[in-house]
Design a protein around this nucleic acid. Structure first.
Lengths: 326, 326
DNA sequence: CTGAAAGCGCTTACAG
DNA sequence: CTGAAAGCGCTTACAG
């Protein structure tokens, strides 16, 4: 079963390949009779003709693909949802999103060369050399809100910092004076964990609160228990966690230790994962608006492809979701 | 900055493009002096030559890409991890995995035609027409353990059925006689929810237990509460849930209703998501071995590409993780 | 209004 | 041991 080509369509409809191409691509600036158009389209349909993307890409040097490179850290439902929405938004512009779970298995260059995407969206950070290589190949390189160093070196950190500040603001607003921080043990998350903790510290300083003790917490009940015990050694009455999973572990630890939440210790997370509202007690958390982030990303991609101006960075991406744990 | 082509390398190293191709592809059956090889390679490196994948694909009709199509249902951490591993296993064979979050945005055909993958791995189910189209285009189509109708129409259902049976076996083994089922409200999950419930029913019948009442449960505490109340109308003392998220909602509902778990009602989920062990009480669940599934999938891809025999389906993918909730 | 022809960059029989 | 040439399928000046 050989491939159906535009030559087949041309022969079958009694026109040249040029005409087939014009008709099927709705090329402007050519006048082709309605009659001919109809015939060509009918034949193409009947034959099940589909243009060869490889040939098209070779000829034009560009594809309809947008490559989305995922970072080395565990993505979770938040990023899943973001990808879904990005896929939808770009599909409206006839762009297909392809996601690559990058894990240092092979050089990134092998991938984008093989795919020849129109644009590469990095949810992972690219090295300067990688980004440069892609740009030279005519590929648009787009960072993201969740990407370290998307435009300026400080923008990402500033954003993550605000996550931490917001946690402290809520806790302090509820009257807590002695805070603790439960951070992740996953080294791949250092780019996030660092700035978030910085934000927590800065806000504490700003509010005149003591510098919070920091405890690394695995996502297990045992680690949560150890963390709660360690934190309760001191005067800590509230814990800000790196994310909801860590917060859930702290919650489990408090439960095991017989420490009541939020009466004896308050807990606040980040992300608002599905399990957050089902926790005991329901978890107070900071959610990052996926809709806005996804819309910003797709707008960035489109702007880069159209050569338009960069879309404005979304503001107030962060929202406090107050439940019972803090 | 125009693209560096094999012609550039040929000119620069004083040989023909043929020779360049032979050297760079390590083509067997040709004898080229070590001296020439060295020179060509050096020039290619110096010029930063990278073959055009589009041209190569056009010429050979095949790429080094494996397209992985995700289903219309919410994937979650289980599938994320599976993709990670699959990516790693196939990378060892110089294959790049590309993931597409399929959401009915555009016809699947547009995608695989644009990508020209060597193989398509469906975590979503393909229609017979879609699968046929891909096969005709010379693309290997691989189903998966989690894919409805991978090889035979019954294999997938049988597997899902076993999930339900296992839940009932554990519950009945703990002495429960009156079981209830908490199913998902997400219609996209029907292909999974149906067979799982069938398994629950079959096993109940087999064990001489009454047919379990079924309650659809949103992933919210309120829905969990309503479910627990509805189930407690009758004699139900144990609930099998569609998955961990639903189970977590039931747990939250029991908490809100003041019903003790597992004393008054036992709960068992499916998946063993990270939050399961952190729940109150820690959730007993059925886990599906990702390692085995990923290994099976990559073996299937490789077998299909090499024309080898299909790898044996992994058995005992299911494992009971007993914690405190049941 | 439509067609013949070039060319995108590669691989591979074929012919030295 | 190496090269000239064809051809994968497409789009697009260019010439009617």
């Amino acid at each position: 079963m050989p491939r159906v080509t535009s030559a087949d369509v041309a022969r079958e409809s009694g026109v040249s390949r040029t005409t087939v191409s014009y008709v099927l691509n709705d090329t402007t600036g050519t006048v082709i009779s309605e009659e001919t158009r109809r015939r060509v389209r009918a034949v193409a349909d009947r034959l099940g003709y589909a243009p060869s993307a490889a040939a098209r890409t070779l000829r034009s040097g560009r594809s309809d693909l947008v490559l989305c490179v995922l970072p080395d850290w565990p993505v979770g439902p938040v990023v899943d949802a973001l990808l879904d929405q990005l896929t939808g938004e770009l599909a409206a512009r006839d762009l297909s999103v392809l996601v690559h779970h990058h894990r240092e298995h092979r050089p990134l260059a092998d991938l984008w060369r093989a795919v020849t995407p129109r644009a590469v969206v990095g949810l992972a950070a690219f090295s300067a050399a990688e980004a440069e290589g892609m740009r030279r190949a005519g590929i648009q390189v787009i960072g993201s809100v969740v990407d370290p160093d998307p435009r300026g070196p400080d923008e990402f950190a500033a954003y993550q910092t605000r996550v931490g500040r917001l946690q402290v603001q809520h806790l302090a607003g509820a009257g807590h004076r002695a805070l603790g921080y439960a951070t992740t043990t996953d080294p791949r998350l250092a780019d996030f964990a660092g700035p978030r903790l910085d934000g927590v510290r800065e806000e504490c300083r700003w509010l005149g609160l003591p510098d919070p003790p920091v405890v690394p917490v695995d996502v297990t009940a045992e680690a949560g228990l150890a963390a709660v015990r360690a934190l309760r050694q001191g005067p800590v009455t509230a814990v800000a966690a790196y994310n909801d999973e860590v917060a859930l572990a702290v919650l489990a630890g408090a439960r095991a230790a017989g420490v009541r939440v939020p009466q004896e210790v308050a807990v606040i997370g980040v992300d608002d994962v599905p399990a957050a509202q089902l926790a005991a007690p329901p978890l107070t958390t900071v959610s990052q608006s996926l809709e806005l982030q996804a819309r910003f990303l797709s707008a960035s991609v489109l702007a880069a492809l159209d050569g338009g101006p960069e879309p404005p960075r979304p503001t107030d991406l962060l929202r406090l979701v107050v439940r019972s744990s803090a």
